[in-house]
C-alpha cells in the first residue's frame, strides 16, 4: 500500500472533513458521469451522488487502501443504484439489458449555461447521448469504466463484482452496441 493510500485510509477512518471536502471536489465530475451513465437520469444521478458521499463518510473505516480509491467509490455508488433498482423491482442491473422507456439521457442542466452555449453543446453531444440511450445500462457501465475512467479489467471486475471474463464479454458487446447505435444515429 502506498503512503498516499495509507493517509487516505487514515483520513477516512477519522472522518476528516477537510479530506472529504477535497475528495468530493476532486471526484465530482467522474462520479457524476458514472452515475449518469448508470441511471440515465440527471436527478437520480444527483441523488445517488450525495448518497454515495454520505456512505463514504459512514463506511470510510472499511477502506483499506488495497484498491484504488475511485474503484472503491464507484463500487459504493453502484451498490446504491443496485439497491434502488431492487427496491423498485426485484432485479439487478443485469436486467437492464434493454433500454428502459424512461431511461432518457437527461444530461443538460438548463440553468448552468447561456442559451448560445446550450445550443452549441446540444449540437455537439445530443447525437452521442441519443445513441447511448440505445446501449443497455449494463454495457454502458463497463464502457464508462474502461474508456472514460481508463480502469484496468481487474479493477472493473472489482467495481462490478463480476469475473474478468464477464467484464470482457460485456465490453465486446458494449463496443458493438455502441458502434451500431452511433452508426444508426449518424444516418
Amino acid at each position: 500500500m502506498t503512503d498516499d493510500a495509507k493517509a487516505l485510509a487514515r483520513g477516512l477512518q477519522r472522518r476528516d472533513p477537510e479530506l472529504l471536502d477535497r475528495l468530493i471536489e476532486q471526484y465530482q465530475f467522474r462520479l457524476f458521469r458514472y452515475l449518469l451513465h448508470l441511471t440515465a437520469s440527471h436527478e437520480r444521478a444527483e441523488d445517488f451522488f450525495q448518497e454515495t458521499w454520505l456512505r463514504v463518510l459512514e463506511r470510510g473505516h472499511q477502506y483499506d487502501g488495497k484498491w484504488k480509491f475511485e474503484a472503491w467509490l464507484f463500487a459504493i455508488a453502484r451498490n446504491l443504484v443496485l439497491d434502488w433498482h431492487r427496491r423498485k423491482k426485484p432485479q439487478s442491473l443485469d436486467s437492464l439489458a434493454g433500454p428502459e422507456e424512461d431511461a432518457t439521457f437527461d444530461v443538460k442542466d438548463e440553468h448552468s449555461e447561456s442559451p448560445l452555449e446550450q445550443v452549441l453543446h446540444a449540437e455537439q453531444t445530443s447525437g452521442v447521448q441519443q445513441s447511448l440511450e440505445k446501449v443497455p445500462a449494463i454495457y454502458r457501465e463497463v464502457l464508462v469504466l474502461r474508456f472514460q475512467e481508463e480502469m484496468q479489467l481487474d479493477e472493473i471486475a472489482g467495481v462490478t463484482g463480476t469475473p474478468i471474463s464477464t467484464v470482457k464479454s460485456r465490453l465486446y458487446r458494449g463496443l458493438d452496441a455502441m458502434k451500431n447505435a452511433m452508426q444508426r444515429g449518424a444516418v
Binding site: D21, R33, D109, S112, T125, L143
Partner: peptide
C-alpha cells in the same frame, strides 16, 4: 465521441454535497 462526451454538472453539486456530508 464517447470519451469526449460533454456532461454538465448540476449547479453547486460539490458544495451542496459537502454541506450534507
Amino acid at each position: 465521441a464517447f470519451r469526449t462526451m460533454h456532461i454538465d454538472l448540476p449547479r453547486n453539486l460539490a458544495s451542496r454535497t459537502q454541506l450534507r456530508v
